[in-house]
Each structure stands twice: as structure tokens, then as C-alpha cells.
Amino acid sequence: MTEPGTGAASPLAGGAPEQRRPAAWGRWLAHFLVAPSGVLLFLAVWTILAIELPPSRLVSPYAVAVDLWNNFLRSPRLEVFGLGRTGYGALLLYTTRNVLVGLVVGSAVGIVVGIASARLRPLRLIVDPIVLVLGTVPVLVAAPLFLLWFGVVPFTQVLLVGGYSAVMMVIFAQRAAANVDPVYEKSAMARGASWRDRLFLVLIPGTLPEILGGLRITLASAWGLETFAEILGAPSGIGQAIKTLTNVNNVAGMLACVSLVALTAIIMDMLLVALARWVTRWA
């Protein structure tokens, strides 16, 4: 593959002999052996603490798993407390839907506004003060206000998650656009690219690594925000289950719901990481 006289500082340019690396299967095996050790350590500490503490404070991971299994599809005790014929699974679905809708809509708005304001100075003069205010005022402060304005409906939580995602992604997208080397846009212009070509073929691909990194952070925050908004007041959702079960001191149920949210958030983060790796495989 080495081209004559093309330098030697790259994998395709030859150069120093390749260092010996473990085979791919070896690396995967090491990964699967090492990665769960953190989880096992966490469960071990949890179990020890559960033995030491009274059940009204903490129950074992096993008890939480049993509660999760028994209440996932249908939870009679949640019916008693007015959450209807439901289970943890259906409540999680409500929460996940709100997180995704809020994140997608809010991030889309944030990314467009962020990139546009990074290139259009008048827009930036308008956007920056708004982002400054919304970014520095704790978003949870706005949650009760949204409840007053819009009531106990799903839209209230979606708006909170969407608004927060938009503000976060404006900041990430602005920074990403500022970090794209101007030489790429100059090069595109010099080769006849229109503004649309520069946007779609240069600016958006060039900003993707930073934007996807920002999206991960925003997604993680969105879970916490949605759950907390549901605890404050919502017609459904895993946050409502956590609130209800905490009020009746059902530690196993409460931890089962928290674990369910954490597990779903981790899976979604892993999916986002996989997507980001594929989209930015050139980096």
C-alpha cells in the first residue's frame, strides 16, 4: 500500500514496523472480563450495606430485582395510589418517550440556532443573552412555573426537557462551529461551493464530533430532568412511581424504579456512543 515517496508518518505510508498488538478477540475478551468488574463491585458494596442497614433504609439488590420482576408489567399497589392499571414498564415507556421527544426537538432547535449564530453575528447578539439567562438560572426553578402555566400534562415535562436540551445544544453547537478550522470553508468556497454546500458538506460534518459529545451530556441530564419533573407533578411516568413508593416507604419499589431509569439511560447512552463512533469514524 505504500506509495513511493509519500512520507512515512501514516498507517498507509509504511514507516516503522507495526507494533505487536493483541488479537481482536483477545481485546474483546479482556473488555468483557474487566468491564463488569465495576458493576460487580457496586453490587457487592450495596449488598454489604443492605445487610448492615435496616430494610426501611436499604434492601438488597436481590429484593429490588424481585420487586422489579413482580411489578414490571402490572403493579397492583400503584393502582391503589391512583396511577391506574399500570406497571413499571408502562411508566418507563412514558418517561422514555418524553425524554426522546424533548431531546430530539430541543436538540434540533439548539443545533440549528447554535451553528447559525456562530456564523451570523447579528443572530449571535440576540441568542447569547438568552442562552446566558436560561443557562445560568437552574432549569428546575422553571419546572413549577411550567406546571402552573400548562398543568399536569405530558407537554409540561417535554417542554422542560426540550428547553433545557435546546439551551445546552446551542452552547455545544456554537463552540463546535467556532472550532471548525476556517481553512475548510475557505477551501470549499474556492472550489465553488454554495452556502448550502458549505453548510451540509463542511460545517455540519466538521461540527459532528463535538455536537455528538454534547448530545451525550444533554441526554444524561435529560433523564434526571424528566424524572424530577414527573416527581413534581405528572399524569404518569416513572418519576410519579418513585414519588408514590417513597411516600409509602417502599424502598424496594423505589430502588427498582431508580434502577430501571438508570439501566435505560445507560443503554441509550451506549446506543448514542455506538452511533457517534460510526458517524465520526473518520476522526
Binding site: A188, A190, R191, G192, P205, W282
Partner: peptide, 29 residues
């Protein structure tokens, strides 16, 4: 303008495009 091609001092090869797509960029637009 397309009547002038420019080779820049800094590396302006788009990292997110494969080599042949970089070379074909002007033709694509």
C-alpha cells in the same frame, strides 16, 4: 470562483471525506 483553484498553506483536506471524495469535491458542487 471556479476559474481559480487554491492550494492552502494549512492542510485543507476534509478529514470527514474519503480521499476520492476530497478530490472530487469541486466536481460534486
Amino acid at each position: 470562483g471556479v476559474d481559480r483553484g487554491v492550494i492552502f498553506q494549512k492542510d485543507a483536506v476534509f478529514p470527514w471525506m474519503r480521499v476520492e471524495d476530497n478530490v472530487a469535491f469541486g466536481l460534486r458542487v
